[in-house]
Computed example of a mutant assay.
Amino acid sequence: MAARARADSERRSLQSPSGKALNNFVPVCLAARGYTDGVLQENLEKEILNTGCTELDLSENLITQRGASILAKVIRLNKTLTHLSLVNNRIESNGAKALANALNTNKVLILLDLWNNEVKDEGVKALATTLATNKTLTHLYLGKNEVTDTGAKALADALKNQNNTLTHLYLRKNKITKAGAEELAKALETNRSLRELYLFGNLLENEVTHAFGNALRRNITLLVLDLAGSGINNDGAQALARALEKNRCLTILDLADNNIEDDGVDSLIDAIMSRVRKIIMTGYPLTPSCFRDHDLP
């Protein structure tokens, strides 16, 4: 249900590569049907090829790398499918590699959701290689896939050097540490397409705030940064607050479930007052409207 709700939310704002709104939706929901690879193969032509399907939800089924390979063959030359959700299946690294290979020639897929598929670093590296040439994929969900610093670095390299299309990258609940997060932060210094980056539930440390602080001073496109549950303390909050004084685009900074106390909160409040933005703390979102006795600029 959460995956479908998220897809509905994304749908309202997505555009085609030409910049036109995607209004002619032909959704096909096959979520939680108990589909195996064999059943998928039997139904693929009827459910997708002959319907002009634009959105396909196959979340919470029993699809493995074989099923992903079957899908990849369809995606390679498909001209209608813009959204594909495989949440909570088991396509693993080889399945991700097959999909990545298909995206080398596919010209229409905008959103790929692989949450909780045991994709791991090898699968992520294949997708990162594809990002170097793919010019249509804007939303990539890779949460809960046991991604480590190796996968994070591969994605960072793509964002830093080649890709200028991806706008949303979801890496929540993986195994990325300080080193991988710092690579992603460095990519943000030069990347001009990414709008949202989600890192909640990884193995980050307070020191990542310095790398992201440097990135926020230089970045001119990122709107949402999720560093919830990252071990950030007052010093880290103050480092981010100083960066926000220079940044003119970030609108949401998620710092929930960290170790920020009064001094850190005070610094963040000052950053909020410098321009309209929202900082999420545990159980309490900080916005300029929280401080009625202050005059906003």
Rank of each mutant, 00 (worst) to 15 (best):
A100N: 03
R90K: 14
R277D: 00
D293F: 07
V276D: 15
S230N: 05
E10T: 06
K107P: 05
L30W: 14
S9Y: 05
L225D: 10
K160A: 06
L99I: 15
P297F: 00
Y35L: 15
S289C: 02
T82P: 12
L62I: 14
A181M: 01
G143Y: 01
I252P: 00
F291I: 13
R11Q: 12
V87T: 14
G236W: 00
D257T: 03
L240I: 10
D121C: 07
E261C: 03
L296V: 13
L223A: 10
L194Y: 07
I63A: 04
N94S: 14
V39P: 00
K175F: 01
N43E: 09
L240W: 02
L131P: 05
N88G: 03
N163P: 08
F200M: 10
N24S: 13
L268F: 03
N88W: 02
T287I: 11
V26Q: 08
N101A: 12
R217N: 13
S230A: 15
A21N: 13
V276W: 02
N88I: 09
L184C: 05
L109M: 12
D157Y: 08
L197R: 06
C53Q: 08
A152M: 10
N24E: 05
A72S: 13
R172C: 10
A156W: 08
G229D: 05
H294N: 10
A100C: 05
